[in-house]
Structure formats: C-alpha cells, structure tokens
Design a protein around this nucleic acid. Structure first.
Lengths: 239, 239
DNA sequence: GAGATCTAAAGTGTCGACACTTCGAGTCAA
DNA sequence: TTGACTCGAAGTGTCGACACTTTAGATCTC
C-alpha cells in the first residue's frame, strides 16, 4: 500500500543504532527473542559486530516502544505483555485513532478509499496470520498519516509494535476458536472504511472506536511473542 | 498536590543522563535556552562536568519530548514551536485526556475531588503565570494518573513539556488581551471537576475535550520559550 | 541435605580517544 | 564588493577501557 504524501523523517539521525533497533525489534516481534529473555549490551554488541553505544541507544528506544523492560537492577529483559497491558493498549489506540479518524475524514479523498480497499483485498488473500496482522496495522497507520498530525502519529508509532503483537495474538486466538480471522478482519475494516469516507468526522471517530473495541475484544490471558511461532493458544477469554 | 497512589517508575534506570535531562529541560522551559540555540554534546558535557554519553542520552529523550530537534546534518537545536504545533498538541491532548477522563471518572473517589479542589484554590492564588501553568499541568497530570493506564500516562508525559510551554504562552496572551488568566483557568477547571466527579464517564470525557479546546483556543502565531522571560506578545489570534 | 558465604564471571555506567563530517572565518580571484 | 575556495575548528558516530555492582556457581557450615 502506498503511503500518504507526508514522509515521516521525524528523527533524521541515521546511525548504527537504527539498524540494531530494526534487527532487535524484528527478533522480538517474530518471537525469536521471547519475553523474559536477557538483553545484555556486551552480548548484543558482539552479535551485531558493534560497540555497546549503538546497542544501548537501540535498547532505550525499545524500552520506549514497550517491547523491552529495564529492571531495577539495571538489567534489560524482553517484556512480557499481560492482559492488563492488552487493555491499556486498546484504550490508548481508541484515544489516538478516534481522533485521527475524525481529522482524516474531514479531508478524505477518493484515492484514500482506493488505497484502503486494496489493503482490504490483500487482507482477504493473506496467506499467514502474521501477514494479516501486518496488513491490519498498515490500514491503521494509513489513517494515522491522513490525520496529518505528527504528534498523533509519533505517539501512535510508539505503541504500534505492542499493538502488532496483540493483534497477532488475537487473530491466532480467533482461529483456534473456529472463528475465521480473515473474514472478521475484512468485514470489520470494510465497515470502518465506509464510515471514514462518509465525510462525517464524528461518525468516523465513533466507528473507529467501535472497530478497535471489537477487534481487540478477544484478549488472551497473556500475550506472548512465542505465540507467533508455537501456535499454542491460551484458552482464557474475557467477557 | 499529592500524587495518585501509583508511582511512575516506568524507567528505573537511574543515571547521570537523568540529571542532565532534568537540567536541560528546565533551561528550555524557562527560556534560558531559546528556540534555535545549538546543543553541542561536547559543550554540554563540559558544562555538566560529564562525558558525552549521558548528554547524548538526554538529548535523545528531549527529542522524543519535542523540545529539541535533530537537524539532517546531525546537529541538535532547541526546537521552535509553530502555530501548527500548537494545534497538533491540542488535538493530541484532547485524544489522550478525554480517554483518561472517561476512565478516571469511572473510579472517582471523594479524596480525588478534594485534591483537585486544593489545586484549584492554589491556581487562584498563583503569584506568577509560570506557577499558574505549572498548577494547570499538575491538575491534568493527576487525572491522567487516575486513569490507571501506564500507556496513556507515558504517551501524555511525552508531550507534557510542549504542552506546558503552550500553556504559559496562552496565559500570557490572555493577560495582554486584558482577560484575567487566573479567573478563566480557575473557573474552567471548576466546571471540569464537577463533570469528572459526576460519575458519568461520557460526560467527563466530553467536558474534558471542551475544556482543552477552550483553554487552548488562544493560539499565538509562534510559541517561543523566550515569551516566558521577555513578556513580549505576538498579537496574532486565531478565529 | 539445607542454608549461608565466598568469589569469579558478567553487566552497567561512564569516560576519553579517534576518524570522519560539517561549519565558518579568512583568503583569493573576478 | 561579491562570490568561490581553503583550511583549521568544532561536532557527531563509534570504539575500547575501567570502576563498580550484580549474578550465579562453588564452597563451607550446621
């Protein structure tokens, strides 16, 4: 999906830390690094063939993104997401994305609908749950960019990776419960798109909130990155 | 004002970088460091009697808080806030704080009203506009903490310093236009508190949005940290 | 065998150094 | 006078080193 006109480039610093960040984030999201795993600076530095400085910078960013946790002892671990974290992320998303939907719908253009329809079409054909999650996040990022508010976008981006982990977990849970995640996701986004394109900001905002509430209604008792790989499901279910 | 039960301690790392961060932030907020001023790591390191590492860490955090800007050349400057930034911050606040008000009002306790009433009483007696701004921010931080959502709180804290700069600028503009900033602020927060304590989450959320919209209605053409000190006013006024 | 104690290994916080890049005052040519 | 050029000065990105702290296995005691 092509992105909105506005390029991000919020932090123009281009350095080794950025590459380490990307690599570490990918390993956490993919589940290669699991919750609780230790992230020692010297070990990672050797692994990436760099010194500790860029690694340290990347870890600080990952902590801000909520994927990593600094212990009181100073050590760093991959963070474990609990059900409460799941709820918190849902509320934060509702807050940020409802406002974004409100602003985006005020300046909605036909090509925006085209872009998002293409995204939904690809959702329907997604071959893996990971791909479905990625497309889902991309849909929402597009709306966030349309809002043309760098603050809102930056805030959203700082929770987007936690959000992506939650999403994958939700999709997987839906599948084990014999709901069709593709079908649910596609249908939900189609309804949302109608509201976004309606030209009614308040309707768009409200529908976005409902969309997020419903899409994150299925909350596993613990969101583990390992779920991505193992396919094991926790049977717990809220409400 | 006593803070809510929950301590923050989101990042338990206690190091020199934290002290440098506090000092630099204070200098920017106070206007001692002005927009556009260069922030060179070796210069600051010598100033703080430290090496560059802690300074670098602090600058990265300040960039995340929006008080500092990394140029494409790699240099670092104190950021200039424009009218568009002002609008962005207002929308971001409405998004985050409306949700916080919704959640906070659901678990409202009498002592919360007492705390905030004390804050309002101090607003009325604030001797300087800077103190009025500080109390205003404290009021809103209290509500954010009551929401008991660390994501929401963290996101809010990452824009709170920009917000404080905007607020001070607004108050000053109100004063030059012969509106009484104390009176406006006190009255507005009193109405908001009533809504928060009403036990109706949706009313609380809506009133919070209206409160923020009205409190940030007066937008100077450029929000300069220098305003704090010089007292010079830009006469531009939106709407 | 269980618990307390010791100790080497490993980790963080901080530092100064070096290479490369960017800036800006001074110089030179038109 | 103005514009391009030069070349130190200053700044960033990165590195390896050291001191102090925490960890975890080994040892000792009861």
């Amino acid at each position: 999906m092509p992105h909105s006109a506005k390029p991000p480039a919020l932090n123009p610093r281009r350095n080794l830390a950025g590459e380490v960040l990307l690599a570490l984030r990918a390993e956490i999201i993919s589940g290669h690094l699991q919750p609780g795993d230790a992230l020692a600076e010297p070990v990672l530095a050797k692994q990436f063939g760099s010194s500790r400085a860029p690694v340290r910078e990347a870890l600080i960013e990952l902590e801000r993104e909520g994927l990593v946790q600094f212990e009181l002892t100073g050590r760093t671990k991959v963070r474990t997401l609990t059900e409460q974290d799941f709820d918190e992320i849902r509320d934060a998303r509702v807050a940020l994305e409802s406002m974004a939907a409100r602003r985006a719908s005020a300046t909605w253009a036909p090509e925006d609908s085209t872009c998002l329809e293409q995204n939904i079409a690809r959702q329907a054909k997604a071959s893996t749950l990971a791909e479905l999650s990625r497309l889902d996040v991309e849909f929402h990022e597009y709306v966030m960019r349309l809002a043309a508010n760098t603050r809102l976008l930056t805030l959203w981006q700082s929770i987007r990776w936690q959000f992506e982990m939650c999403l994958a977990s939700t999709h997987r849970l839906q599948q084990t419960l014999a709901c069709r995640p593709h079908q649910i996701t596609v249908s939900s986004h189609r309804h949302l798109l109608t509201a976004l394109a309606s030209g009614k900001p308040e309707v768009a905002a409200q529908k976005m909130a409902l969309h997020i509430e419903s899409s994150m209604e299925w909350s596993p008792s613990e969101i583990s990155t390992a779920d991505h790989l193992t396919g094991l499901a926790t049977e717990t279910h809220r409400r």
